[in-house]
Write a protein that binds this DNA or RNA. Structure first.
Length: 571
RNA sequence: CGGAGCGUGGCGCAGUUUGGUAGCGCACCUGCUUUGGGAGCAGGGGGUCGAAGGUUCAAAUCCUUUCGCUCCGACCA
């Protein structure tokens, strides 16, 4: 039986903000008694929180099923073999919780399920007639995150809906991908969230196209570039802009200049009275143990994702102080591309025609000026390596300007292609009886993260304001005082609304009015009905809509119809 | 992993500088009063001060080690 009486509900609300929480959703999830922490990034969901999760799961299932995906349940505990097959055992590395069973066989807790699905399907799918297929599950993922954060926003254990499409070719994949894209838009909209699709980097999943679905919020961990004019939207990890090449047309000889203790671009600007655009910023990086010097304009920032993708590196990090001498034969603060032998040098495309540049001299307290790319140093490639900034021109329409906003990634879809099927040997036979690799896509929604995102987007000083589709209960009834008539009438209303199919919570606790009001606002139930002896005498109850905290009186005689009407107006 | 900070009844905190009987608010239990915006009075229960080791007559407080948690960076649903 579903508990709908607050006196019996395990709902430990908190009056004060917990010290451990920083962002609003985290604070409110703890204060509203939705969850409790077990360990860093690992939570127990209490009745209220779990009801919200189940609502989101239900909406997600509906749209997945409508798009003809089929629900399965895949193992959490996975053998190391399949991960070695796909060549991700090392790539995912420490992100996976790994362990051995009593027979010393190696396992991990699934951080994602591409391997399991591919393994599952490679033994079963034989013919092109078996495809296309889309399998999905809603399940707990385990990732030993480098830094769990913001409660459920970035947990080490979290609930995810993940789907995997299997097609015979790329046309099929495009169709499957579009179907998921559309389903995702419907899922987020039905949850009452404002989410936008943006072009995204593929990261550890690999593959071609990829979109992320972002909920805009100040606490978001991602930055998204939007065009003010057209529909261009991209994660800054991969966003581009129209930005002209730099060319100062200086043909003078290279000259060494003394720059004592001047290490940063801004110090150089001040010391030499030269704008940063005339400098080349040389960033010493180490990619999978190999030294790489990345060059961008002095006014730009290196985009490490773009560099990682260009290098196809597994791990990219900034060089450490000691490594400057060792790996680069240079010195921190004065590193530059000229005469830097045996180090890979990659430059941002804006520098292609640059001349008259100021660069580090690879010697303490010295820089070089009048440096020209191609003449004074060679690079292995000019490619896009910079991060866009707000105000730059849109790469797509050329008319708008880019705005940058923070977002929470609640969904991510990938065109994986044949990476997994080829590595793991998941083939089908085409019409000609020829073996072909299955073309795959993968599609994720962070269910628990979605809960946090919904709160980030819907709250006020009093607490959560649930969109009605994912609210743990639709209506809360507050009987005030010990008056017999109030108790009787409240119970009657409660029973009637329940009988009509509403999800009603009744605060039958022996608490004062203020406590009940405050808790009801904290836990964010969309519609509140307050029943007190004064209003009963007038034949009315007070309704409050949490969305905007507006209050109105509704006639007792007409209560059920009024509730219906009010609820329909709530978003 | 690098940088910063915090661990004291269930929750929020003071006490640590300068060692000397563990405190406050909320919550909880009992009684009386109160009852439409986090009640009042009276009484009461609950803490190996994260852990281990050390210094000392004496350690929440000083020293060493260690574990956990939070925040800033790399990772991602």
């Amino acid at each position: 039986m579903i508990r709908m009486r607050m006196s019996k509900l395990y709902l430990p609300t908190l009056k004060e903000d917990p010290a451990e929480a920083e962002v609003i959703s985290h604070k409110l999830m703890l204060r509203a008694g939705m969850m409790r922490k077990h360990s860093s990034g690992i939570y127990s969901y209490l009745p209220l929180g779990y009801r919200v999760i189940k609502k989101i799961e239900k909406i997600t299932r509906k749209h997945m099923d409508m798009s003809e995906a089929q629900e399965v349940l895949l193992p959490i505990m996975q053998t190391s073999e399949i991960w070695k097959d796909s060549k991700r055992w090392d790539k995912f590395g420490p992100l996976m919780i790994k362990f051995n069973d009593r027979k010393a066989r190696e396992y991990c807790l699934g951080p994602t399920h591409e391997e399991v699905v591919t393994d599952l399907v490679r033994d079963e799918v034989r013919s092109y007639k078996d495809l296309p297929l889309n399998l999905y599950q809603i399940q707990t993922k385990v990732r030993d995150e480098i830094r769990p954060r913001f409660g459920v926003m970035r947990g080490r254990e979290f609930i995810m809906k993940d789907a995997y499409s299997l097609d015979i070719d790329y046309q099929g994949l495009d169709k499957s991908y579009q179907a998921m894209f559309d389903a995702y838009e419907r899922i987020f909209a039905e949850c009452g969230l404002e989410a936008v699709a943006v072009e995204a980097d593929t990261g550890a999943m690999g593959g071609k196209d990829s979109h992320e679905f972002m909920v805009l919020a100040d606490s978001g961990e991602d930055e998204i570039a939007f065009c003010s004019h057209c529909d261009y939207a991209a994660n800054v990890e991969r966003a581009t802009s129209k930005k002209t090449d730099i060319d100062f047309e200086v043909e003078a000889e290279v000259e060494k200049i003394h720059t004592p203790e001047i290490k940063t671009i801004s110090e150089l600007e001040e010391y030499l009275e030269v704008p940063a655009a005339k400098m080349i910023k040389a960033v010493a990086m180490v990619a999978d143990g190999e030294a790489v010097l990345a060059l961008v304009s002095g006014e730009d920032e290196l985009n490490e994702i773009k560099l990682t993708n260009y290098l196809q590196a597994n791990e990219l990090r900034a060089a450490e102080e000691e490594e400057f001498a060792e790996l680069f034969n240079s010195t921190a603060g004065f590193i530059g591309p000229v005469d830097l032998n045996k180090v890979r040098i990659v430059a941002d495309q804006r520098l292609k025609n640059m001349s008259g540049a100021i660069v580090g001299a690879n010697e303490k307290d010295y820089h070089l000026k009048n440096v020209k790319a191609g003449r004074d140093f060679e690079v292995e490639a000019f490619t896009d390596l910079r991060s866009v900034r707000g105000g730059e021109r849109c790469p797509k329409c050329d008319q708008g300007k880019l705005n940058i906003k923070d977002g929470i990634e609640v969904g991510h879809i990938f065109k994986l292609g044949t990476k997994y099927s080829e590595n793991m040997g998941a083939n089908y036979l085409d019409e000609n009886g020829k073996a072909q690799p299955i073309v795959m896509g993968s599609y994720g929604i962070g269910i628990t993260r979605l809960v946090a995102a919904a709160i980030e987007q819907n709250n006020d000083q009093y607490g959560i304001k649930w969109p009605k589709a994912i609210a743990p209960y639709q209506i809360i009834i507050l009987p005030l005082g010990n008056d017999d008539l109030v108790q009787e009438k409240s119970e009657e209303i409660y029973q009637n609304l329940k009988a009509q199919g509403w999800e009603v919570l009744i605060d039958d606790r022996d608490e004062r009015a203020g406590v009940k009001f405050n808790d009801s606002e904290l836990i964010g139930i969309p519609l509140r009905l307050t029943i007190g002896s004064r209003s009963l005498e007038n034949g009315v109850v007070e309704a409050m809509i949490r969305e905007n905290n507006s209050k109105l009186e509704i006639e007792l005689d007409n209560l059920e119809a009024e509730v219906e009407k009010l609820f329909a107006e709530i978003s």
